[in-house]
């Protein structure tokens, strides 16, 4: 038996495989396809104080080895999340992480305070490219990132994860500031700002013109950023971006990620998370690697 448990701050995970926010709904949608008990953690769809409608369609389009989305954070809002979505997730033996998004620091703080007692960790989404204000407005500005994390840190006891945007020129700076302001872990990357045009109609393929690119197309960017970030901080990094199978996940672990999240792959192969867990264990058994910690940051260069 190989050992695959990892720790993200004070959060202990039975294995390093997590679902990426917005790609696994509230867990229910996958419960007949995936044994949710086997997941290291589930990150729920991003939530805000008030329910949000999201952007008009078309909201998604396929691109080479990936997809664009501009969902615009459609979500049920925190009240319905706590009352209707959490009880279902709580029936399973897995960790539940809430992904939160506000327009102001006060909104993030209120969300964090209300969730502190009912979830296992909080992921601060400061990197959503698909909403006006909030989200990426914080994640692109070092001072705002600092102030936001600092304020939420004071308000919440649970493990605090900051989800970083790849749409910045120096990810290392944001990683360092997040750590210094009290973040227990980092999550990266969110989607890469992108665009696609229908040449026949000369129109953008998304109603919102720009959207976020995800899937295998962004994996090398994500691996590079995980490597850059994990080198400059001591807090653990959750790596994601185009992970489709175990080999991809192992690449992130070697680059320095302590845990990994599976996103777009859930759409293509609903059982991707389970296959990644099994594949990592198999890889370790074959390579006689007893503890996953021997893979993390194991890049030779």
């Amino acid at each position: 038996m190989v050992r695959v448990e990892v720790d993200i701050g004070r959060l202990h995970l039975k294995n390093p495989v997590i679902t990426a926010s917005g790609t696994f709904g509230y867990g229910e949608e996958y419960s007949d396809l995936v044994d949710l008990n086997r997941l290291g953690a589930i990150v729920a769809k991003g939530i805000s104080l008030k329910p949000m409608d999201g952007n008009p369609p078309p909201r998604i389009c396929e691109t080479p080895c990936g997809m664009l989305n501009s969902i615009g954070l459609q979500n049920v809002g925190i009240d319905v999340f706590i009352k209707e979505k959490l009880p279902f997730l709580r029936r399973y033996d897995t960790r539940i992480i809430a992904n939160i998004l506000g327009n102001t620091i006060e909104e993030y703080v209120e969300l964090a305070m209300r969730l502190d007692d009912v979830v296992d960790a909080i992921e601060l989404n400061i990197s959503c490219p698909n909403v006006q204000g909030g989200g990426i407005a914080f994640g692109r500005d070092l001072r705002m990132t600092e102030e936001l994390i600092f304020s939420v840190r004071k308000a919440a006891k649970k493990t605090l994860i900051t989800k970083l945007s790849p749409n910045v020129s120096d990810i290392g700076e944001f990683a360092k500031v997040s750590e210094a302001s009290g973040s227990d872990a980092l999550s990266l990357i969110n989607t890469v700002m992108a665009m696609s045009i229908d040449i026949k109609t000369r129109r953008p393929r998304l109603f919102s013109v720009m959207g976020g690119l995800s899937g295998p197309a962004i994996r090398p960017i994500a691996v590079r950023m995980v490597w850059e970030a994990s080198r400059v901080v001591r807090i653990p990094v959750i790596g994601m971006g185009g992970i489709m199978k175990a080999e991809d996940a192992i690449e992130f672990l070697l680059a320095g990620a302590t845990a990994i999240a599976v996103g777009t792959a859930n759409f293509v192969n609903p059982r991707a998370t389970i296959e990644v867990i099994e594949g990592i264990e198999e890889f370790m058994e074959k390579g006689k690697i007893d503890n996953i910690k021997d893979l993390i940051g194991g890049l030779i260069c």
Partner: peptide, 21 residues
């Protein structure tokens, strides 16, 4: 509508209705 998951999780395939998306 364009779809990614088919399972209700991605929220990509919405259309506008009298009760919202």
């Amino acid at each position: 509508e364009y779809m990614a998951c088919g399972l209700g999780s991605c929220l990509g395939c919405v259309i506008r209705t009298t009760q919202g998306y």
